[in-house]
Structures are given as structure tokens and as C-alpha cells.
Design a protein around this nucleic acid. Sequence first.
DNA 1: ACTAACTCTACAGGGTCAATATAGTTTAGG
DNA 2: CCTAAACTATATTGACCCTGTAGAGTTAGT
Lengths: 148, 148
Amino acid sequence: MISQKAKYALRALVALAKQPPGQPTFIGDIAEAQSIPKKFLEQILLDLKHHGLVASRRGKAGGYGLLRPADTISFGEVLRIVDGPIAPLPCLSKIAYRRCEDCQEEANCEVRRVFAQVADATRAVLDRTTIADAIGANLPIRLREMVA
Amino acid sequence: MISQKAKYALRALVALAKQPPGQPTFIGDIAEAQSIPKKFLEQILLDLKHHGLVASRRGKAGGYGLLRPADTISFGEVLRIVDGPIAPLPCLSKIAYRRCEDCQEEANCEVRRVFAQVADATRAVLDRTTIADAIGANLPIRLREMVA
DNA sequence: ACTAACTCTACAGGGTCAATATAGTTTAGG
DNA sequence: CCTAAACTATATTGACCCTGTAGAGTTAGT
């Protein structure tokens, strides 16, 4: 299960991507249109700003907009920012590897071997699918070089 | 991330599957060999018993054993027992569907469309891989009819 | 009977998640 | 200039879950 926060973040990015670029969009407008608590969305967008996905202007004519083109922002990137590692086991995360303390020999771990396949399959979708892909009606997405 | 509890459950089932069938194995032996807190493992095995995966005998010569052949117990089944639904969103669970309250139109939800692919890819691995598969060295597992 | 195993219920401590609160800063426009 | 409306930042809350422990009870072999 992904967190509510991640769902909000993705929905907000999709909403921003649908907006004409250039002029910023109010947090309040997104919050209302998407049924997201406004103050919560503020935190989320601020976080995405710190990671360089969106930009904002303050003041009365302020608002948010995408900083990078929608086809360069993958679902995986957003999820990692908001929810942390995607891996189903700490010992399978590439960005935040941590050994399972109770695991004897990682190389022989049957559970790990199976979930490594889950992780690959999941990343194959999340890291190849962008916000732009999600908006375009041309799904499903190419999954050529799927799990080995 | 799967829970610690699920990891323990899978490791215990793998350990049981490696045991010669017929004679039961002590919780204490599994707990020690796998570095799992014994009382915690008791709860887990009890839960698996209630779901018909393992059987137990009480008393001095008691212990646990697999109730069904290892090649009929999938990782997905175990995960659903211990951790609940596998789906990344409540609206994508087959066994415990729940509408996202804040979602306007499910059919048009971009986030849902993408995560439906994640769910399919994940289930393709978890529902086809059994405890027996995990023990056998013949990985990777056949993934023929992967996501459409 | 005694003992070593499983069975069951309860619960405690810590952490995370979702959301709210509060206070502050910036900018456009009158 | 001054105010409204927007973003920025930090703190806090309450609910819930995860992990693990406790302890009393039940069963069965010797």
C-alpha cells in the first residue's frame, strides 16, 4: 500500500501537468478540485519543491507549477521522495540498502530471492512511467526490457 | 515494504518445507535456527494454522508441520494472511476492495491506472511462486503470462 | 504426576501516518 | 503603504499499527 500522501502528491502533479505552463496554479484550487486537505497539500508541494520537481511563486499572484517537463518525472521518483524506498525488503533497496539483521546469509535467502523479482517487476513499471504517460491515453506502457 | 511478521512467516514455512515430512518440528527449534523471537513465532504459526497452511501436535512430542504440499502454498497466499491485501491501493484489491474516498471517477483515475500495472506485475510473481519454488535452485521462475 | 510442548488473550512501548495549528514571510494591487 | 492572499516553516495532535512480551491455560508423552 502506498501512503495517502504519495497518492496526493501524484494527483497534484497530474493536475499541474494538465495546466497550461507558465502561469502558476493556486494550492487552494488543486486542493479543492482533488479533495485534498489544503494544509496537508502545502506540506507535500513544499517537499516536492525542495526536491526540484515543482516551482512556486509567493504573494498574491503566486502558485505552483511543474519545474521539469511531465515526461521526465517518473512515478518511482515521486514515490521515493514521499514514501521512501520502494523495495519490499530493506536488503533490496538500491538507494537505502540495509541488511536484514536476522538474515544469516543474504545470498542464500529464499525470501530475498523471490522478492528481488517483485522489486524488479515493480520498478519496471514505476521507473518507466511518467506523469505524462499517466495523462496520455496510450496505456499500457511499453514494458520491453522487463525482468530478466 | 512487507512486515517483519510476513518475513518470519515465510522463513518459517521454508524451514518447515525443508524438514522431513511426518514428524513435527518444535517452534523453539525454528525460532533459534532463524533468529525469530519464539513467542512472536507462536502467534504467527497459530495464525497460519487457523488458515490451514500448517498443522500442529501438542504435548511433549508436539510441534508443527506443513499441512499442504509446499508447491501449493504461494507467497501471495501467505502475504495476504499475514499482511492483508497486496494491492498498492485499496481500490485495486481483489479480496478487500475499498473505494478511495477522495477519488472522483475511478475509471478515469490516472494514478489508479498506473498502479493497476504494478499490482498485476506483483501478483504475477507472488501468486505463481510457491514455497517449493523458493527452495528449488531453479530460479528465476516462469513469468510467461506477465502483464498484458 | 510431571514436564515440555502448543494455545490463547491481553497489552505495552514505540513509531508512523494524516491532518491541524500557529506563526511568519512575500508580493500584487488599490 | 497597507492589506489580502498566497506560500513557508515548524510543532503538535490523535489514531492506528507493528513488534514483541507476559502469563495463564491446555494437551499429551513418559
